[in-house]
Simulated assay, not measured.
Amino acid sequence: MKLDLDGKTALITGASKGIGLALASVLAQEGCHLHLAARNGAAMNAAKDELEAQYKVRVTVHALDLSRTEAMEKLAQDVGDVDVLVNNAGDVPAGSLEVVDDAAWRAGFDLKVFGYITLARAYYRRMKGRDGVIVNVIGNSGENWDASYIAGSTGNAALMAFTKALGGASLDDGVRVVGVNPGPVATDRMLKIMKRKAIDMLGDEGRWEELFDKYPGKRPATAEEVANLCAFLASPRAGYITGTIVTIDGGIAARGSVI
């Protein structure tokens, strides 16, 4: 399906690996110019060289730590106007209430929860009347609460509410706001979470691969599967979708399981 994104410009946070990097590739294939933001400048510059050579799009790299409001505001100022904002940077720690301390809660929320809100605030007003799209990559623990990932569940639930509240009214301003809730995805971040779950469930982080047996299809999602969904929701093909969350987890949340 042609997504009609040719010539548009997108900003993707958390773009050095995982879902963000996979989405950069998908959008570049569709002819979308890119701004990539994350801490790992080397990885993004490697992606820039590859994507510009292969797809003839413009790729600009912004290597910075997005865990502070000032950094998010600087990013928005440096990037300027875009057609699509993809909020994807986040690293909320896994663990129970007893495991995750106050500092870790705050650091995780500063990057993901407040980071998403700060960039949405910065770009929403710029997008008014311009058919802009904000895609928030959130996580299925926001709808399928998990005591062993309590900070993530709490932060993701907040971002789901934020997305629905803003997206419910945004079409009045010519803006769409949507969310994507991945379940487990084959990324470096998933490995950290799975090791923590293996401790909680099996008593040994080294047994994390055994948890795959509990997944639908005996596997996590691929980053490309999530990226394809994000690209569709960002495109004019999804022009009447706003104020909603699309879950991509193989049915995990629907059956009330954490994995």
Score class of each variant (00 low, 15 high):
residue 55 Y to N: 12
residue 70 E to D: 13
residue 61 V to N: 03
residue 82 V to M: 06
residue 82 V to K: 09
residue 73 E to P: 03
residue 78 D to N: 13
residue 58 R to K: 13
residue 69 T to S: 12
residue 66 L to E: 08
residue 52 E to D: 08
residue 52 E to I: 08
residue 73 E to F: 02
residue 51 L to Y: 06
residue 46 A to S: 15
residue 81 D to L: 10
residue 61 V to W: 01
residue 64 L to W: 01
residue 57 V to I: 15
residue 54 Q to R: 14
residue 48 K to Y: 01
residue 66 L to C: 09
residue 68 R to N: 13
residue 56 K to E: 13
residue 61 V to T: 12
residue 46 A to K: 11
residue 75 L to Y: 04
residue 79 V to L: 05
residue 56 K to Q: 14
residue 52 E to M: 15
residue 70 E to P: 05
residue 72 M to H: 14
residue 49 D to Y: 01
residue 66 L to I: 09
residue 64 L to A: 15
residue 59 V to A: 07
residue 65 D to A: 04
residue 84 V to G: 06
residue 63 A to F: 01
residue 64 L to G: 10
residue 62 H to R: 03
residue 52 E to A: 06
residue 67 S to G: 15
residue 83 D to P: 04
residue 82 V to S: 09
residue 76 A to V: 09
residue 80 G to A: 11
residue 49 D to H: 12
residue 63 A to S: 13
residue 79 V to F: 01
residue 55 Y to M: 10
residue 71 A to R: 04
residue 70 E to N: 07
residue 78 D to S: 14
residue 68 R to F: 01
residue 67 S to P: 00
residue 82 V to F: 02
residue 61 V to A: 03
residue 57 V to K: 11
residue 71 A to H: 11
residue 53 A to Y: 07
residue 72 M to F: 02
residue 58 R to D: 11
residue 52 E to Y: 03
residue 72 M to W: 01
residue 53 A to P: 00
residue 46 A to N: 13
residue 84 V to C: 06
residue 77 Q to C: 08
residue 63 A to L: 04
residue 59 V to R: 07
residue 77 Q to Y: 01
residue 55 Y to K: 12
residue 56 K to R: 12
residue 48 K to H: 03
residue 56 K to S: 13
residue 51 L to H: 08
residue 73 E to Q: 15
residue 62 H to T: 07
residue 63 A to M: 03
residue 67 S to W: 03
residue 83 D to T: 07
residue 59 V to C: 11
residue 74 K to I: 00
residue 48 K to P: 08
residue 46 A to V: 10
residue 74 K to E: 12
residue 76 A to P: 05
residue 60 T to R: 14
residue 65 D to S: 09
residue 64 L to P: 00
residue 49 D to P: 00
residue 72 M to T: 07
residue 61 V to G: 05
residue 48 K to V: 00
residue 78 D to M: 07
residue 48 K to R: 15
residue 69 T to R: 15
residue 74 K to C: 03
residue 84 V to W: 02
residue 83 D to C: 07
residue 54 Q to L: 10
residue 79 V to Q: 03
residue 69 T to C: 01
residue 66 L to Y: 00
residue 68 R to A: 14
residue 77 Q to V: 10
residue 83 D to M: 09
residue 77 Q to G: 03
residue 55 Y to T: 01
residue 63 A to G: 08
residue 48 K to G: 07
residue 83 D to S: 11
residue 66 L to W: 01
residue 76 A to W: 02
residue 74 K to F: 00
residue 53 A to Q: 13
residue 57 V to L: 09
residue 50 E to H: 11
residue 55 Y to F: 15
residue 79 V to M: 04
residue 65 D to G: 10
residue 51 L to G: 08
residue 65 D to L: 04
